[in-house]
Design a binder for these strands. Structure first.
Length: 810
RNA sequence: GCCGAAGUGGCGGAAUGGUAGACGCGGCGGAUUCAAAAUCCGUUGUCAGCGAUGGCGUGUCGGUUCAAGUCCGACCUUCGGUACCA
């Protein structure tokens, strides 16, 4: 009897819907699990095979946990603001809201067709005014707390496209789209003071059950480093400049200084002889994206003609300009110690600058010696003979005494540029006073950006105006600036102007996990009770591309909300796992242009949802990057069909010992594998069970029951179908997960490898806990082993019960 | 450049420092069939050998260990991130 996946899967999906099977419920005193997926951006392309990968993984854990009588919150929603909808609107004139709703409908249909056990009553949409309202509300809390402020930020401005571009959209100073020139230009932006949380964002990483690499990346991104600022006076000028260094101990080895091309002192100190070269270099560097600058192997730079005075000995050192020094880190100026810093060394080599050794231990004519713990200071006056850590303390004391430097903790983390000059985002709930002679919509006017005013919380949400034209235009204020009737309003006879920037897509995704605990609350983003019931998120699964930005931004918001008393846990996501990228059949990243995109709909149609789920979980470890292979699908189709055939046979109460052992071993293995998210090996164990049962007809009832229950988290439609065929009227979603008898999962006798000098030469079968003499006697009797031991002296005999026997012979 | 991850048969992969290659795909052989598909059974790292069996094998080079895919060091390659794609 063939398995008709179409009707069976449709039947069970209808059943779950009608019975509200997966509605989250919280019972007093029960354990809970909040299992969260990174919610998708509902793109026009529809679901990608990468989505069901992570979503199946969490669904397996959710279904398994319900069967273990744990209260489960497993929600889904839409991260629906964003650029593609706006760009589509630009091309077609369709309002982004329309496109977005259409795409959401498609995504929802697709996700439902895969049988995920979401509590759909909690669905959220970041563009829904009822959601935007609370995004804006959180922004206002940040604003009132002084964490949101405005600043001038240098951005990639493309005058022809009329828009700000991401670094990756700028290639060699030209826009990726259209090859138009791009200039670096300061623009008024809203910023969030994430740097205020740098310390805690770093220290609280400890104790999170996250991938080690992700923790390291966040730590590195925050980039805490302890060092000092040192003041350098400039020869023949009243001005001085500060540098930040992590190695003040090497100050005697500073043979030149470097300013970032944007450094404000450049025009003051440059000599006439060097002026034209400097101006040309600065102009060129100015329009290079920071990433280009940091990535280039070849160091470039130019001499200013000016000299700085080393504070330790007043010796003049040349001041250079180079784009490997970034204005956005530290003070935008460095003291260069080529003997003990790799980049300074390369620069000095390239420009023939002197390299002085001040820490013994390496060979500075070959490479910089960068060890900051070991070595001995030389050529360093008062520091001579010290080790670097001691030298640091000594020089700091010296500098502080003279007011020439001080201890300083520096972070790489920068404040977060939080505004975008786009249409399809949350409007800022902020307005400004306007000075005008008449009606600012038609008359000349001045907007006082330095006096931002918060919109009353009771007036939220502040909705987007309806626009016909979403083009950015030539006004860097963004498209909302053209909605003059929305932008300008009168209050108490005075004119005001709304902020016309919008928030970035991050805003909505920074707190959606909070909304899920209380999604329909109309008087708050969430209630403290609901938050206590479900937070923190126990398992969060999503792509590694979010390792830093999204996960750091969300942690930052969470901590700010924690400080304000709106949540009671300092961290939002307890356990984090990244699913690996699924590549195309050609081993390349899936993309429309390569034509290697697999549409999950096609696989569902041809083979069923359970097959998509089983295949994606069987492909390999969840976290591994792995290529799609259509030919492999056949394997899980066979498994699914065979499991159905075997599981729907008539059953018998009798069971042979070997089958019983295997059933119990499988229960153990599948449970343990789900716990460690090793779904590929869990499915493999289920295949072994089914293969074992294949020749048995009738099939033992105990085995058939276990099969239906164990397979159900992976292939829920199949599981339910088998369960109902076993005579059950109810769903198995809350059926207790089967337990195993420990006595039945261990063998009495085992086969053990016998090695001679570490090479396996034979095997012996013995009691699991046999003692060494018995093991040795058995091993020495093995035909192969005899040959390899013949005529040799056994120097050592190693027996690790249950593991190995090894003869070391001479 | 910097930060992070990964390299195992023809392919996807398995393996608490302990018999490398579970499970699956593909291949080969067989059963079934008028024939095929589907299904079922067997076999399959590689080289040498009729065979028993032996040599070689987890990106490269070196090290630790009775024993290394696994631990340590250096390197190579691929992938992710690099702050306005999210």
């Amino acid at each position: 009897m063939a398995y008709d996946h179409r009707s069976i899967e449709a039947h069970w999906q209808r059943y779950w819907d009608e019975h509200d099977t997966f509605r989250a419920r919280r019972r007093e005193g029960r354990p809970k699990l909040y299992i969260l997926d990174m919610f998708p951006y509902p793109s026009g392309a529809g679901l990608h095979v990468g989505h069901p990968e992570g979503y199946t993984a969490t669904d397996i854990v959710a279904r398994y946990s319900r069967m273990k009588d744990i209260d489960v919150l497993h929600p889904m929603g839409w991260d629906a603001f964003g650029l593609p909808a706006e760009q589509y609107a630009l091309q077609t004139g369709t309002h982004p809201a329309v496109t977005t709703q259409k795409n959401i409908a498609t995504f929802k249909r697709q996700l439902k067709s895969l049988g995920f056990s979401y509590d759909w009553s909690r669905e959220v949409d970041t563009t829904d005014p009822n959601y935007v309202r609370w995004t804006q509300w959180i922004f206002l809390q940040l604003f009132k707390k002084g964490l949101a402020f405005q600043d001038l930020v240098t951005v990639n401005w493309c005058p022809l496209l009329g828009t700000v571009l991401a670094n990756e959209e700028v290639i060699d100073g030209k826009s990726e789209r259209g090859q138009h020139p791009v200039e670096r230009r300061p623009l008024r932006q809203w910023m969030l003071r994430i740097t205020e949380y740098a310390d805690r964002l770093e220290s609280d990483l400890e104790g999170l059950d996250w991938p080690r690499g992700t923790l390291l990346m966040q730590k590195e991104w925050i980039g805490r480093s302890e060092g000092a600022t040192v003041t350098f006076r400039i020869q023949g000028h009243p001005e001085s400049f500060e540098v930040f260094t992590t190695r003040p101990d090497t100050l005697f080895g500073a043979t030149y200084c470097v300013l970032a091309p944007e450094h404000p002192l450049i025009q003051t100190i440059v000599t006439d002889a060097e002026r034209s070269a400097v101006t040309a270099y600065v102009a060129k560097a100015k329009n290079r994206a920071e990433r280009d600058r940091a990535a280039s192997k070849q160091k470039t730079g130019v001499f200013t003609g000016a000299y700085a005075l080393n504070p330790v000995d007043d010796k003049p050192v040349p001041i250079w300009i180079a784009d490997y020094v970034l204005m956005s880190y530290g003070t935008g100026a460095i003291m260069a110690v080529p003997g003990h810093d790799g980049r300074d060394w390369e620069f000095a080599k390239a420009f023939g600058l002197p390299i002085v050794e001040v820490v013994k231990g390496g060979n500075v004519s070959e490479a910089a010696y960068t060890d900051s713990e070991d070595g001995e200071l030389i050529h360093s006056g008062l520091l001579d003979g010290l080790k670097p850590p001691a030298a640091k303390l000594r020089i700091l004391a010296f500098l502080e005494e003279r007011g020439l430097g001080t201890k300083k903790v520096q972070y790489k983390l920068r404040d977060w540029v939080f505004s975008r000059q786009r249409y399809w985002g949350e409007p800022f709930p902020i307005y400004f006073p306007v000075t005008t002679d008449g009606d600012p919509r038609t008359c000349a006017h001045t907007v006082h950006f330095d006096q931002p005013i918060a919109v009353e919380e009771s007036e939220l949400p502040l909705r987007l105006p309806d626009l016909e034209d979403f083009k950015p235009g030539d006004d860097p204020a963004g498209p909302l600036a053209r909605a003059v009737d929305w932008r300008f309003f009168q209050k108490d006879g005075k004119w005001f102007a709304r902020e016309t920037n919008t928030m970035p897509q991050w805003a909505g995704s920074c707190w959606y996990y909070l909304r899920f605990v209380d999604p329909t609350n109309a008087s708050a983003g969430w209630s403290p009770e609901a938050a206590k019931e479900w937070l923190p998120v126990d398992l969060y699964v999503g792509g590694a591309e979010h390792a830093v930005l999204h996960l750091l931004y969300a942690r930052f918001w969470h901590k700010a909300l924690f400080d304000l008393g709106f949540v009671s846990e300092p961290e939002p996501f307890k356990r984090l796992v990244h699913q690996g990228l699924i590549l195309g059949e050609d081993g390349e990243k899936m993309s429309k242009s390569r034509g290697n995109v697999i549409n999950p709909d096609d696989i569902v149609k041809a083979h069923g949802a359970d097959v998509v789920r089983l295949y994606e979980m069987f492909m390999g470890p969840l976290e591994a990057v792995k290529p799609w292979q259509s030919t492999q699908i056949q394997g899980v189709v066979r498994f699914r069909d065979r499991a159905f055939t075997v599981g729907s046979r008539t059953t018998t109460d009798s069971i042979d010992a070997a089958t019983q052992r295997l059933v119990h071993k499988t229960i153990k293995k599948v449970g343990e594998d789900i716990d460690r998210l090793a779904f590929n090996t869990a499915i493999s164990a289920l295949m072994v069970l089914v293969n074992h049962l294949q020749p048995q007809d009738p099939v033992p009832k105990e085995a058939a029951r276990a099969l239906a229950l164990l397979v159900s988290p992976f292939a829920p439609h199949l599981g339910e179908e088998l369960w109902s065929r076993l005579g059950h009227a109810q769903t198995l979603a809350y059926e207790p997960w089967p337990t195993f008898d420990p006595a039945l999962v261990t063998e009495d006798t085992i086969e053990l490898g016998v090695q001679v000098n570490g090479k396996t030469r034979g095997t012996v079968r013995l009691q699991k806990d046999a003692d060494a003499d018995v093991a040795r006697a058995l091993a020495e009797a093995d035909g192969e082993v005899i040959r390899f031991l013949a005529g040799k002296e056994v120097k050592k005999f190693i027996y690790v019960p249950g593991r190995i026997i090894n003869f070391v012979v001479g």
